[in-house]
């Protein structure tokens, strides 16, 4: 069995584009999923029963489904539901954003709830509105606890972008596997794919560790 590792170098352009797409998807998803998660968390924490239940249902829905299924489902249902043809990229983004927003919602909610009730009471006792108390006292403290969890979610998201390859979005996994199909260089391309993910993911994992250490809860 002979291996031609040159094929990786030959296709470096496509692989680079794939890697960029992976990173781009991760960044864009998180940019949308953080406000999404905040919105859902606020809905859940509000005293309005309808908003609270809607948020709970949304979060439970996505916590209990495999992402790859959500991606497929979005791919088939979105054109029918909205009577518009969406690009695979848009579909992928929608599925990813909805999924990560649900997880972020839980993260934000748990973070806010972890702040002692007394802090809210002290702020209210001064005459602050609930809103002021939230934004000036509770959230700044919760942010410290939320950041490490958000960092872990980021890494999961980075890996999950590989799943959108199943609907032919040209991120790293899809691109690598396309090249494999074209060149029949299975071992080389699949190893290259793994290596490229590793090169991007390993430093991120170490960064997440650092964040956990720096912002770890020392109650």
């Amino acid at each position: 069995m002979n291996f031609d590792w040159n094929v990786i170098w030959t296709h470096r352009g496509a692989l680079w584009d794939g890697a960029l797409m992976t990173v781009g998807l991760t960044v864009l998803t998180m940019l949308l999923a953080v406000p999404g998660g905040i919105l859902l968390a606020l809905m859940r924490l509000s005293s309005n029963k309808m908003l609270s239940s809607a948020s709970l249902a949304f979060v439970e829905f996505f916590r209990n489904l495999p992402l790859i299924l959500v991606i497929y489902w979005a791919f088939y249902v979105m054109p029918i539901a909205f009577d518009v043809q969406f690009s695979a990229l848009t579909t992928a983004l929608v599925a990813l954003v909805l999924n990560v927003s649900a997880y972020n919602a839980e993260t934000f909610r748990a973070g806010i709830n972890s702040i002692r009730k007394g802090q809210m009471e002290a702020a209210l006792a001064m005459g602050m509105s609930r809103r002021q108390a939230m934004f000036k006292v509770v959230i700044p403290q919760a942010a410290r606890r939320i950041l490490p969890v958000l960092a872990s979610t980021w890494i999961s998201l980075f890996k999950d972008t590989s799943l959108v390859s199943v609907i032919a979005v040209s991120e790293l996994a899809y691109t690598s596997m396309q090249i494999r199909a074209q060149t029949f260089r299975v071992l080389e391309m699949l190893t290259a794919m793994a290596a490229l993910y590793w090169l991007m993911g390993y430093p991120q994992a170490k960064l997440v560790d650092w964040i956990h250490k720096k912002y770890g809860v020392k109650e």
């Binding site: 007394g118 006792a125 403290q141």
Partner: peptide, 29 residues
């Protein structure tokens, strides 16, 4: 809220805001 502004409360667990200095805690209200 207006009524609460006319009363001050001191808690058993102090409940100072940990992310602010002593001065900023007092100035916050």
């Amino acid at each position: 809220r207006k009524v609460r502004q006319r009363m001050g409360m001191v808690f058993q667990s102090f409940e100072l805001f940990p992310h602010k200095t002593a001065l900023d805690n007092v100035a916050m209200g």
